[in-house]
Simulated scan of single mutants.
Amino acid sequence: MQLQDVKPRPGAKKSRKRIGCGESSGHGKTSCKGHKGQMARAGRGIRPGFEGGQMPMHRRLPKKGFNNALFQDAIEVVNVGELNAFDDGAVINEAALREAGLVSRTCDIIKILGSGDLSRKLTIQGAKVSASAREKIEKAGGSIAA
């Protein structure tokens, strides 16, 4: 088989409907548009969402609320159990958490939550800490710096 011998499968190619080419074509006279009416006119058709003059859905439904997501802070959560990856006596700050891969570069606020157990003495800096996480960190002998 050569490249010039390759042909599409039978029925895959369909010739276009040639409208307005005389009565014998089957698509003459009104050119498949029917008689009169909105859809027979030039520039025919209706815009998306038009419901024939009835009040459209997007205007009938109530508009409520506002979500200003553009200015929301991206908060990332780190559980206490994940902090066991650090050495005993380490200082945990934003840079250390990023280096360990526990938070992404794009986060604005880091919050440490109390899920899991902590077996190391750590110092936490520059992160929000939940009450249960604070309790577990202090119980392990660690501290939280403001």
Rank of each mutant, 00 (worst) to 15 (best):
I124P: 15
N84E: 12
V80D: 02
Q2H: 10
H58C: 09
A85I: 15
A90L: 07
I144L: 13
F71A: 08
L3Y: 05
S143H: 03
N79S: 15
I46K: 10
V77D: 02
D73F: 00
R60V: 01
R47T: 12
R134F: 01
V103S: 02
A42C: 01
L118P: 14
E99Q: 15
V78A: 10
M1N: 12
C32T: 05
S31H: 12
S104T: 15
A42F: 05
K111C: 10
N79V: 06
K13Q: 03
G43S: 12
G28F: 00
G114K: 04
P8A: 11
A12M: 08
Q72W: 15
H58S: 10
S143G: 04
E135R: 13
A140K: 11
I19N: 02
G53F: 04
S31P: 00
P48F: 15
K63R: 04
D108P: 02
D108H: 04
I75M: 04
F71N: 05
Q2N: 14
G142Y: 11
H27A: 14
G81D: 13
K121Y: 01
K64L: 07
Q38N: 12
F66K: 11
G101W: 08
I109N: 06
I75H: 11
Q2L: 11
M55W: 00
L3N: 12
R9W: 08
D5W: 07
A127E: 08
V129H: 03
A133Q: 05
K36G: 09
H58Q: 11
L113P: 02
T106A: 13
G11H: 04
I75T: 10
R9V: 14
S104M: 11
F50R: 00
Q4K: 14
G20E: 12
Q72F: 13
G65P: 10
Q38V: 08
I144N: 07
G49D: 14
S104Y: 03
L118F: 07
Q2F: 09
M57V: 08
G114H: 01
E135H: 10
K139I: 08
A74N: 06
N67C: 01
Q54N: 12
A100W: 07
N67L: 10
E135V: 00
